[in-house]
């Protein structure tokens, strides 16, 4: 494996509530993401997937362990990492047009190049002609595509996604998955996605990690050896897909049972 883009080294996160309560959300997670690799993290709800992603992106400091991006320790969000959140309506800025929202991701570029990159990014996600629209004028699926354009306009090395398709309906969801898969195949970024949808993780990923219930650790790692390019109608019918999905699901259920046991 080439030098990893992202390394989590025995990462642990303990949250302190305002009332003084202490919750160990992430116990011990180690993982590596190779360049151009697509890795998904699945786990039962409450397994601290979002917390883990925040620590991995530099949005929050881990309590123990270390995060390295492109070989350097992470302090704050590195410029090579872009993040797409689940709630696009609280992530796209409603006071900016779609074009200006996307341009926010390209602030490092000089204005002429920026405009071109923004146009290009909007084109890639199928939002040509929507630059002057406002987020609240667009459907949820389109807003999430705009968020994706904003994340990719900076040409990141690593795209992190936190339940990126959880807030849209099933049809839009499949479509968005393919938008991401297509962009990923045509570009050179690695992807780290957190999701609770096992089928989605298998469909998109090279590797799926299953988290245990909190305090979470990596319970299983499953390599997805499905051929690419993948399509919703074809790939999801393959016996191998069904088999892999069942494998992952089994481990997630196991994690869920452990959680019930703990409670």
């Amino acid at each position: 494996m080439a030098d990893p883009v992202l390394t989590l080294d025995h990462l642990g996160v303990t949250l302190r509530g305002r009332d003084g309560s202490v919750t160990e959300v992430t116990a011990d997670v180690s993982l590596e993401v190779a360049p151009r690799e697509f890795v998904s993290i699945v786990g039962p709800s409450g397994s601290g997937k979002t917390t883990l992603l925040k620590a991995a992106s530099g949005l929050r400091d881990p309590t123990v362990g270390a995060v390295r991006f492109a070989g350097s320790p992470v302090e704050g969000v590195p410029s090579g990492i872009s993040v797409v959140f689940q709630e696009y309506n609280k992530s796209l800025f409603p006071w900016l047009s779609i074009g200006k929202n996307v341009a926010m991701g390209a602030r490092r570029l000089a204005p002429p190049a920026r405009a071109e990159h923004v146009r290009d990014a909007l084109h890639k996600v199928g939002l040509d002609g929507f630059a002057s629209r406002y987020p609240w004028e667009l459907s949820g699926g389109m807003q999430q595509r705009a968020a994706l354009a904003r994340a990719l306009v900076s040409d990141p090395q690593l795209l992190m996604m936190d339940e990126p398709f959880a807030s849209v309906d099933a049809l839009t969801r499949g479509h968005l998955e393919d938008v991401v898969a297509d962009l990923w195949e045509r570009s050179s970024f690695a992807a780290l996605m957190v999701t609770h949808d096992v089928g989605e993780a298998v469909y998109l990923s090279d590797r799926v990690l299953v988290l245990s219930a909190r305090p979470s650790r990596v319970l299983a790692e499953i390599t997805i050896d499905l051929p690419r390019p993948r399509t919703q109608s074809h790939t999801r019918q393959l016996p191998r897909f069904v088999e892999l999905e069942a494998q992952v699901l089994e481990r997630v259920e196991e994690a869920g049972r452990m959680a019930v046991g703990i409670d």
Partner: peptide
């Protein structure tokens, strides 16, 4: 202000 606005801003280096 929504925490997610702030988090988003931080990922955009604001």
């Amino acid at each position: 202000v929504e925490n997610l606005f702030i988090d988003t801003a931080r990922t955009l280096d604001l």
